[in-house]
Amino acid sequence: MSSQEQTQSNAELEIETEIQSERSDRETRADEPVLEVRELDVHYGDERALQPVNADIPEKKVTAIIGPSGCGKSTFLRCVNRMNDQIDVCSVGGELYFHGKNVYDDDVDPVALRRKIGQVFQRPNPFPKSIYDNVAYGLRIQGKTDDLDTRVERALRRAALWSEVEDRLDESALDLSGGQQQRLCIARAIAPDPEVLLMDEPASALDPIATAKVEDLIEDLAENYTVVIVTHNMQQAARISDKTAVFLTGGELVEFDDTTTIFENPANQAVEDYITGKFG
């Protein structure tokens, strides 16, 4: 190993331990849910998109959200980091507590909230900048610019993209394939180390190999992060998640339980029909 590589991996280690110590502060509250959803409902204009939702999302676990198209999965995700604020016609009712603080309180700054709760979108949306600058964007605006190169490399490695882009970091991200762009967006979201990561069908544009890598990443992430993932792939939900929420048409959260219970012994007949493919 060359001395340059040595110092690099040392730097990586330092960041790692730094993160570990940051995390250990949170360890003390580990048994309480990180997100508590209380009677949360959403309207787009007069259309109701979510029936009142109640759920406790556990810390450092993977929670999967499944359900037919248009049932409000993306809408629910956007409630968590208040991305619904960007939609003029959208109004949110009820409460959503993050570490015990209602994120819909007037004194909550959505910009600060989103630095703790990252998101990967359903459609890949890289910036028209270089690959490097895409990953560095969040780090730069959040002022985490020490060891920028190391952090960017680490995020790209974890998103299983590094080997494909390491020689072309300066090239435009728009020249990447759709699947590569999606992994780039994953790297961009995890680079600033959010506490909660919301992923909206992150693997829908990926081939089986990349999907497997992203699933590995999610399992890996769950050691330090809380992951909430929307997926249309039942096997994927069963494989990677600890908890599963099933939304059905009309924006109703029909069942929310341990993943094994949902898949082996669901309480609700509609959920069983949906999972076994008899529904919609």
């Binding site: 980091n81 991305m83 960007q86 910009v111 600060a112 909230l113 989103r114 630095r115 990252g118 998101q119 979108f121 459609r123 949306n125 890289p126 910036f127 028209p128 964007y137 969040g138 605006i141 959040q142 967006c185 961009r188 979201a189 600033p192």
Partner: peptide, 18 residues
Amino acid sequence: VPDDLRNGAYALGASRHE
């Protein structure tokens, strides 16, 4: 400019100015 790009930045904790 597609809203997807703005959302990508807002979701990373960018302010309106950024």
